[in-house]
Amino acid sequence: MKVVTGVVGNDIHVVANRLIDISLQSRGYEVFNLGVNTYLEEFIDAVIETDAKVLLISSLNGEAEGWCRDLMILKDKYNLKDVVFVIGGNLSVGEGDESLIVPKFKEYGFDLVFHQIDLMEGLNILDNHMQGYLI
C-alpha cells in the first residue's frame, strides 16, 4: 500500500521523519517520503501523482495548524475522499490539550490524529484502520 509522508512547513525535524519512513517500510508500506520542509500543496501533488492510499503528515515544531487549515478545500478540489489523511507529532506549541486538539484537526479533514503519541502505537492504529481497505 502506498503512503506519502513528510514534515509540514518550516520544520526540519529529520530524525523523526526518517524513523517514520523506516517503520512504515518495515510494516510493508511503499513509502514516498518528501522529507522535511514540505508544503501542503506538495503533499497533495504527491498523493495524486503516486495514487497513494494514505497521506501521513508529521509536525514536530508545533506549527502544523497554520499549514493544515486549507486541507478541506484541497480535498474537495481534487476529489481525494478515498485517501486516508493522518497527522501526528507535536500538534501545538507547548503542551497542548489532546481533548481539544484532536477534534480540531479532525474538523480540518484528518481521519487519524496523533498528538504526542508513541510512534509504534500510532502506526498500530493506522494498520488497524487500513485493514478494511483492499491493497
Binding site: 524513523l19 523506516i22 517503520s23 518495515s26 510494516r27 509504534m120
Partner: peptide, 13 residues
C-alpha cells in the same frame, strides 16, 4: 521483533 530496528535507533540516538 520487526519494530526492534526502529526502537534500537531511537535508543541509540
Amino acid at each position: 521483533n520487526p519494530n526492534s530496528v526502529v526502537n534500537q535507533i531511537i535508543h541509540d540516538i
